[in-house]
Structures are given as structure tokens and as C-alpha cells.
Amino acid sequence: MLNKNVVPLLFTAVTVLTLSACAGMQPLPYAGISSSSQLQHNRDDDAGKVPYKYTAPAAWSRYTRVLVDPVVVYQGSDNQFGEMKAEDRTELADYMGKKFSEKLAARFQAAQQPGPSTLRIKLTLTGAEKTTALVGQFMHFDLAGNLYNGVQSVRGGQGAFSGSVSYAVEIYDSGNGQLLKAYVSKQYPNAMNLVAAFGSLSAAKTGIDKGADALVAQLH
């Protein structure tokens, strides 16, 4: 007969193992964004975070200024917000606009209007998942949950019951309107990030932070 203390652990282990087969929502080539028809399946190593992308030849070094459009909250029927409230979507969009602008300011001068040597960046928040209340935090203290999150951390995967954010980035030459780069991405905290597990939107905001860093790194 199983020890009564082992039963909850086994139940949790089964639940976590089930999660491994269901990694949550996966971003789409959202039909309502301008670059949707140009997006292609990403075959590179970063496909897990950026499943679709489009890239045209571009000399990023010639661009010294950036114009960042206000973040759009995607309203298409293929959005991936689930039951997330409108005010939470707005909060994430505001945070995204602030963080991406801050990170881009380390590489570019801010522009107020289109012009030569100026990029225009359109950001569209297309989906988000909240961290499941209590369960997401519990998984960091439970043995089976920690084992699962540890494996996910090594794989670069999403933590158990952790939140995430999905979005589209479209980068144009503001002078001639040419699309230079576009992609959709899903970002989330490292699976062992305990701090990001507290607060229903904390994981999504951490994902936004990571997404902003990833964008700037591509423009050098």
C-alpha cells in the first residue's frame, strides 16, 4: 500500500508529465497583421520562440533613428488571449510599449516622424497566458514540479502553469515603407524563475522584457 505522503506527489507528477505534452498556446501567422502573407515557417534554431518570420536584406548599421508605433492589441478572431480581461490586455500593451521603447533607446535615437535612416517598428500584442494562481507558485516548491521545471529550464521551455506573451513585430524602412523584417514570437520566463511566478501577469511581463532584448540584439 502506498504511503499517504507519496500519493499527492504521484498525483502532481502525473499532472506535470501531462503538461509536458501540452506546452500551451503556440503563436500563429495571425491573419490580421499586415505581414501575415509574407511570414514563413522558421527553420532556424530559435523556431521554438519565433515560429514564423520574414527577413529582407537590410544593413541595420545605416539606421540611427527609430519610430515606434503605439502597441496594438490584436482583435482578430485568431487572437490568443483566451478569457483574459480587456484591462489586463491593455496593461500588457502599455508595458510592452514602454519596455520596447526603453530597450531600443540604447541603440537608436527616438524619432517623432518618418525620415531617412529611420526605422518604423509596429508591435502587436496577439496573445497572453496568465500564471495559474497558486498552482504556478506551488510547482516551484513541489518536488515533481521542480523536476519538470528543471528539465524545461535546460530545454528553454515554458514552466508548469507559467504565463507567457505572444506578439508580432514588423520593421519597416520609414522612408520608403519597405518591410525589412517581421516575425511572431512567444516569450516567457526561465522555467526556474521563482520571482516571475508571483503575480498573474508577472510571467508575461518578463516575457516582454526578454522579447525587447531579443529585438535589439537582432538590429546590430
Rank of each mutant, 00 (worst) to 15 (best):
R62Y: 05
T64C: 04
A47H: 15
L92N: 01
G82D: 03
D44V: 08
E87A: 14
A56T: 04
D94F: 02
T64A: 11
S61F: 07
K49G: 09
V71H: 00
V71D: 00
Q40H: 06
V68T: 11
A56D: 02
D69F: 04
V72G: 01
E83Q: 15
N42A: 07
A47M: 12
K53Q: 14
N79K: 11
A86K: 11
D94G: 10
K99V: 12
E83H: 15
P57G: 02
V71E: 00
V71F: 03
D44W: 09
V72K: 10
G76R: 05
K85S: 11
N79W: 07
A93I: 08
G82T: 03
T55G: 07
D45Q: 13
L92T: 00
Y95L: 01
Q80A: 10
D45V: 13
D88Y: 12
V50F: 08
A47T: 12
D94T: 12
N79M: 11
E91C: 08
Y95D: 08
Y95S: 07
E91I: 08
K98Y: 09
R62L: 10
K98D: 10
Q40A: 12
A86H: 07
D78E: 08
D44G: 11
A93N: 03
L67Q: 00
T55V: 14
K49M: 13
G82V: 10
A59E: 15
G76M: 03
R89H: 09
R62S: 14
V68Q: 09
Q40D: 01
